[in-house]
Design a protein around this nucleic acid. Structure first.
Lengths: 248, 248
DNA sequence: AATACTTATAGTCATTTGTACAATTAGTTC
DNA sequence: GAACTAATTGTACAAATGACTATAAGTATT
């Protein structure tokens, strides 16, 4: 290891020789994370927006997001921030893209990473807290102009979600433990904003073999009760390990 | 717009009320970019590595990357840095992921975004400059342990590249203006590390209709000369606009 | 208790796509 | 001209897709 030159406890040798810009300037970025939380309920796909209660863009709708703490990863920050602003706790996030336009934040140089997740609206009860003045589940077609570059961030996230959904079982956590094929079809139709033929959807899903037939049936419906299934994640992992991938 | 509280020219109202951590601490991130440059030549897929001539990880192989300037986007920085370190100028980059583990950089808090591109090895002549002590085209299977978390960054990039390649025409800039179907097949085989049946590959590609038949033929080959094609980007854009997507 | 109504599920069938492989073609080299 | 190499075309069967019909199993209505 080469000799280390330390200043304020920070080794700067690796950067110094090649830049004319003062060293400190390289370490003045703010990092933020913006969550695209998709929600599903009653066959509808929505996105969670907050009303900003602080400048900039005070009063305007935005994706829930904020600055990353110095000792956090993006993913940890996403979890904390979403909980702070909306009370929503549990969610598995995945990155979309990182946005670094120099003027994307009107106040400081802030680079942001988008992360998305899908949750069951019925299982969560968001409420505005911290500097959020309101939280709203909004249908995609009703989303108004958002703060910052959040329009673009949301658009990109929708694209990524729809691509993902077609390639692997996603969103089983959005259905009850036991669900019917019609439930599953409704979920996919809401996520993708398309309609499938019922008979063919059934064939395709069943041929993928990651559903467990529970040999139970719906009750209390005013028509022929449907068969209940559950998601067989062991089977799915096994299929996946063998390089298998479905196509919806 | 709410009243703005400025300090050192920076509006801090939006952050201050909710954090116990001093404001400045949120703006001490370093941002870097690491380029995964895939190269193609002689039916081989390689990745461009540099030997680090500065701490940390001095002497070790790494992806070419460095800190983003305060006035640059990630993409602009990627271009500049790759040129500085290797002399490679033109390349279209796309993001892979952003890495934010708190200790991923041993010296400072640096978040990095991966970007990848594919270039024709024959058309570029990389040479080490700035703090790079060497530049190497390395076959994927020969890549040693890399600096930082670059092993993971490279692995993720390969996955993303391979996914991408299967879904849209990519890498036509890696072939000469006029190429044969065998050339194209070799390219895909190198990128994906698989083998295709020649007859079936031909049928699939031609049915996608984004190749222009030039009605010209190879010359000087010791066997039946192959028909030459070029990539018809007008046709491709048209197909793409109609929601069309190929599957290799 | 028969009929209407609703949704689930099964089956049919023509079409397209995928895959393996054989056959033919068009050049060069010996 | 025969042998060789690789390009290209063709063929045959399997599998997947998609539109559609038929039947089943419940409840609600009369």
């Amino acid at each position: 290891m080469a000799t280390e030159i330390k200043e304020n406890g920070v080794n700067k040798q690796f950067a110094v020789p090649y830049y004319e810009i003062p060293y400190e300037k390289f370490f003045q970025f703010g990092m933020s994370v913006d969550s695209i939380v998709f929600g599903y309920h009653d066959d509808q796909l929505k996105v969670l927006l907050i009303k900003r209660g602080a400048a900039p863009f005070q009063g305007q709708l935005a994706l829930p997001g904020d600055l990353v703490y110095p000792n956090e990863t993006i993913e940890v920050a996403a979890h904390r921030i979403l909980k702070d602003l909306t009370g929503i706790d549990e969610h598995n996030v995945e990155q979309t893209k990182t946005y670094s336009a120099v003027d994307r934040h009107p106040v400081a140089r802030v680079i942001t990473t988008g992360v998305y997740s899908i949750i069951d609206i019925a299982k969560h009860d968001p409420h505005a807290s911290a500097w959020a003045e309101g939280v709203y589940w909004t249908s995609l077609e009703d989303v108004p102009q958002l703060a910052f570059d959040h329009d673009q961030i949301l658009k990109d996230a929708v694209d990524i979600l729809r691509n993902k959904v077609r390639k692997e079982p996603i969103g089983f956590e959005l259905l009850p433990e036991k669900f019917t094929l019609a439930d599953l079809q409704n979920l996919y139709e809401a996520l993708l904003n398309v309609k499938f033929d019922k008979a063919n959807f059934r064939k395709r899903i069943l041929s993928a073999k990651f559903l467990k037939d529970l040999n139970e049936f719906q009750e209390g419906v005013p028509h022929r009760p449907a068969r209940l299934y559950s998601f067989d994640s062991d089977k799915y992992d096994e299929l996946r390990a063998n390089g298998f991938s479905i196509q919806i």
